[in-house]
Amino acid sequence: MWEVAELIPTKDEMIKALEERQGKKLQEKFSAATVAVCGLGGLGSNISISLARAGIGKLILIDFDRVDITNLHRQQYKASQIGRYKADALSENLKEIAPYTELEAHNVKITENNAVRLLKEADIICEAFDVAEGKAMLTNTVLESIPDKFLVAASGMAGMGSANNIKTRKVMNRFYLCGDEISEVAESESLVSSRVMLCAAHQAHMVLRILAEKLDT
């Protein structure tokens, strides 16, 4: 039984299946795209899986951190991957899902100094950090230094608030913000997988909409 699972489809078969489900025109746009995911926690790991499944051509995966036991309730890692670098562990998981998506993994912390170099190849950048100061730093750096990129950021997805309060808002040309913009992890002291995944899905979907040239929210 298990040997059969190792016989994965060819690249052509995978692309044909994606075209059948998503349409040839859209699939060609997805295949040609490079998307960077900054932070591979509850937001970033889920965004990456959505985008890999959609057949995005190349993903740049960036996180300095390692998988911790407290991550497993909302992040797309396995118990057997505790202690591994997230960028490496996620690459491994994505390879099993979408073997022909090109992956570039970086086990580094993104700063004002290295962001432009790490992100220069990306068409669209997802901000998926957990700390507010990091979110603001990346947003300011991208919009100031590489304003030709699209940025899809997130703020406010903690707690047990309604799923319906998670939204996507176009703040300005090329800058989108997902979340309820209020629920802070420090105040609510909880992050539940479903609400974080909702926000990640908003981000991934906005990425696909941008590639489909639907630039409103």
Binding site: G41, S155, V171, M172, E181, L191, V196
Partner: peptide
């Protein structure tokens, strides 16, 4: 003017 005030969590 639009001010985005980020909150933590992700």
């Amino acid at each position: 003017v639009e001010i985005v005030n980020f909150v933590g969590g992700g």
